[in-house]
């Protein structure tokens, strides 16, 4: 057969070798990240756990009240939803999940926005980065777990790593899109008045793209949350782990309860980030 002329290309071996090489070569870096980052996240979780749940719930409710334009709906939902999670004994898991999502989102934003700006400014960068983003988003998320474990072992840090890869593309894409969508006349106006590149970016392009970028960040946070269950397969603690263990033991009840917890968290975070981006847009 024609198709068999070329022997099987050992892509799988190459990838394995490459990962191994990276793991060995950069072990110092990975260890450093793992140690420091891991303890930072544990510290953060511990801090959140110190706050009495009732205070925490009230803070979120007040935040929801003001961010949603002084409406009671989201605030009321936050109080009932978070209380329910507490009531089901999932509070610590909730805090773990929250830290994982927040850290992964924060990193996605910190890395994603500059990359998005680079893409908006350079046609070459856009041409190179776009297929990489496609790859990151379409490759099944489980696949990232394997090198994540190889680099960072198990626990929260590889969870964040996998979430970061999976969740950062929307921020990058929306930042790029947002800047490219800034009207040509406004860009010309800023040039015509003698802006430097940085002035143009910070005084015109980023402010104008803010709403679009916020939408991207909202997507990123949601994707990070959706990685919670997947990341629990490599030992990331939190609500996801409850779902996973319920699945492994075929326990419908606990699985459902933990799942509801994730849904409640998702709704609150989504509405909070959305309403804050809408408010900025006004």
């Amino acid at each position: 057969m024609m198709l068999d002329f070329i022997p099987e290309i050992p892509i799988s071996d190459w990838t394995t070798d490459f990962t191994k090489w990276v793991t060995d070569k950069f072990a110092f870096l990975f260890d450093f990240i793992k140690d420091n980052f891991g303890s930072l996240m544990e510290f953060l979780t511990a801090q959140l756990m110190v706050i009495p749940p009732i205070i925490f719930i009230l803070i979120i409710a007040v935040l929801a009240f003001f961010l949603s334009g002084k409406k009671f709906g989201l605030a009321a939902f936050s109080i009932v939803g978070l209380w329910l999670i507490y009531n089901q004994g999932l509070w610590e898991h909730l805090m773990n999940t929250l830290v994982l999502v927040l850290i992964a989102s924060a990193l996605s934003v910190i890395i994603g926005i500059p990359v998005g700006i680079l893409m908006a400014k350079s046609k070459i960068a856009e041409t190179i980065i776009t297929p990489i983003l496609d790859f990151m988003q379409t490759m099944p998320a489980f696949v990232y777990l394997i090198p994540a474990v190889a680099f960072f072992g198990i626990g929260m840090v590889p969870g964040v790593f996998a979430s970061l890869i999976f969740a950062s593309p929307p921020t990058v894409r929306f930042t790029n899109l947002g800047i490219r969508q800034v009207s040509k006349e406004l860009v010309e106006a800023s040039d015509a008045f003698g802006s430097t590149g940085a002035q143009k970016l910070f005084k015109v392009e980023l402010p104008m793209a803010k709403a679009t970028i916020s939408a991207g960040i909202n997507q990123t946070v949601m994707l990070a949350l959706s990685m919670v269950v997947t990341a629990s397969m490599i030992g990331a603690p939190g609500l996801g782990r409850e779902v996973l263990s319920a699945l492994q033991r075929a326990q419908v009840g606990p699985g459902f309860v933990a799942g509801i917890g994730i849904v409640i968290l998702a709704i609150i975070i989504d509405r909070l980030t959305q309403s804050s981006s809408k408010k900025e847009n006004m």
């Binding site: 006349e185 010309e188 106006a189 008045f193």
Partner: peptide, 12 residues
Amino acid sequence: SMVFQKFALFPN
């Protein structure tokens, strides 16, 4: 300095 057809004011 330049004045633009569609004003090109910064809406924010």
